[in-house]
Design a binder for these strands. Structure first.
Lengths: 188, 188
DNA sequence: CTTGTCTATGAAACGAGTTGCATAGCAGGA
DNA sequence: TCCTGCTATGCAACTCGTTTCATAGACAAG
């Protein structure tokens, strides 16, 4: 289980509440690790009881109180230990690949429409990454300095960009293949 | 849940037993959808009770009896329905991205070794895909003909190849970044 | 003035996925 | 001979992840 480690990294980058973490998991970290607020609250509670994080209750005006979390020494040590463990091969769950192979046993036209929509989603995601990159890393207003944290965030973002570009190219290939099959079927 | 649909596709491509399916999920399909034999047996049982698949018990000599599954009409219809549903964005769980960002808070040298090992794994996987491609699709001994099933299997494999190439390029970038950070740290 | 959205946390139930164990005959190597 | 590995299926327990619901004050739009 790596959600606890993802939370540790996020809290080391910037301490905050469970709610704030949940929003980060909808954006930056969320592109590489998804989690709902339920999971986050549950795991934070466990991490607290294990002494990995420290809590401070913060009263707010006009808003519910929040619990401000930061990483404790034990949490830092647990993260270091995890970083030294071998990287496990990701367990892939790629719906689209299954659907494509399934199209051999169905009319492909519906799938073609779905793939076109899907391509749209990925091209928006690429645009979003690129905007984030010029805002935070390469643009004229980007904060200067080359501390390790920023450099590492940037290399992960470059990975996301490379992934989206590769995916968009491949989706063109997929669409061409599906259309070829469709033409061959209606042709006969 | 798409495991049942992955099983339907695999059984449509070629009927077989739960055990055979489990092995396929270690190879071809398994590159895009992982599943253990436990999951497969459990889901097959449910699919059978829903009338999606038909079973035939096959007695064997010197080996345990096996249950031969094939897709029933209801299963084919269920697959078609699923293919028409929108493609959901995959929920990403990328350990490595988390570890890279975590390296900002630890000595990166251990991670560098892990990434080098990981790169090795992906380069072997690429070689494996390329071998499969020449064997089954582009080589001189590849079966001729351009039926939809083979074309679609091939475009999925091309996706796997593109993914591995992209990943290997990115891992070079990651290694260069980690080494730069390490050098800056030991230099100071 | 009601409806909806945002902040903020949490319980409860369910579904998906993993791990360990069990059975059982056959084949091959140390 | 014993141990390992392959074929073949399955139970039980557990962890992980998702969905639904609940609370509750502040604020804005209609």
């Amino acid at each position: 289980m790596a959600l606890e480690h993802a939370i540790l990294v996020s809290l080391l980058e910037k301490p905050g509440s469970g709610y704030e973490l949940a929003r980060r998991f909808d954006r930056s970290i969320g592109y590489f690790w998804t989690a709902t607020h339920q999971q986050i609250y549950r795991v934070l509670k466990r991490m607290e009881s294990e002494g990995w994080v420290a809590v401070r209750e913060v009263a707010q005006q006009g808003r519910p109180d929040k619990k401000h979390y930061s990483v404790a020494e034990a949490g830092r040590a647990a993260l270091a230990e995890w970083l030294h463990e071998p990287i496990e091969p990701e367990s892939v769950r790629h719906d689209l690949a299954v659907k494509i192979r399934g199209a051999a046993f169905d009319d492909p036209s519906a799938l073609i429409r779905q793939v076109e929509r899907y391509r749209q989603v990925h091209s928006e995601r690429l645009a979003h990454y690129l905007a984030g990159q010029s805002r935070d890393f390469t643009g004229p207003d980007a904060p200067q300095g080359t501390d390790a944290m920023r450099e590492l965030q940037h290399v992960v973002l470059r990975g996301g960009i490379a992934y989206e570009r590769m995916t968009l190219d491949w989706l063109e290939d997929v669409l061409a293949t599906l259309r070829r099959i469709q033409a061959a079927r209606t042709g006969r």
